[in-house]
Amino acid sequence: MAISAALGEAPVVVAAPMSYWRTVRWRLAHDRATLLAGGVLALIVLSALLAPWLAPYDPSAGSIRLRLAPVGAPGHVLGTDEQGRDMLSRLLWGGRMTLVAGLTPVLVAFVLGAGLGVAAGYVGGITNTLIMRTMDIFYAFPAVLLAIAISGALGPGLANTLISLSIVFVPRVVRVAESATVQVKSLEYIAAARASGAGVRAIVRHHLLANVLGPILVFSSTQVSLSIILAAGLSFLGLGVTPPAAEWGLMLNTLRQSIYVNAVVPALPGLAIFVTSMAFNLLSDGLRDAMEIRG
């Protein structure tokens, strides 16, 4: 046609358009709040990972004489807890537990939930009914209640906490995955792929997942903070991590009575939970904005 012919003769200066993922990266790199959240998160994860080397004391070794030392006490930068254990060391070690308890269930839920949800949405019919109604049974209970019930039945311990939290989060992810799949499935480009003779596997791989995994990933990332809080809550109730292991929720629980003696030290694990979940929330917000397709 005339237009392309004219362009063909002129020396074409091709400004390479950015690929989708490069655009996403560029947007993330220019989003200050997200960068900050990411930085904070990186610090928290790093400090948790390096706890064995960073922690000045053994997290479970206490000293009766030094109970509830205030923040800034000599030798104990963040004070000590009700058994005289160093708070900084316990917070560092506790971060490992809390992060594992926060991230693992969401990761499990992302994989299982995306699989089940996409299958339910794409196959439809009786498969959809079976999967979705089963999920509804779990969904009918409030998250906290369900987590407590399952943990209570399984007994305390980190592994059981992970199992019960995974069960809490799978149905949520399935729902999002299913509705995203149903929505995308009805779009004409899926019909076009079918008309071109593509099989189910090719369609799901190239046309469906690419458009569905983004929203599922963003949704899952919003659940991380909830998972951290729930895990902490379970420990608080004595259903999660068992003492003397350090975990932020558990620390909050054991320090609860000491709040009248020293208000700052018992608030520290709570602050840690707050900052971590906040950072996860901001990061997932940023991710959502960056992954949005703008026309």
């Binding site: 779009l187 480009y189 190239h206 458009n211």
Partner: peptide, 9 residues
């Protein structure tokens, strides 16, 4: 709008 996959060039 709906007939082209937004994730493919």
């Amino acid at each position: 709008y709906a007939s082209l996959n937004p994730r493919l060039t």
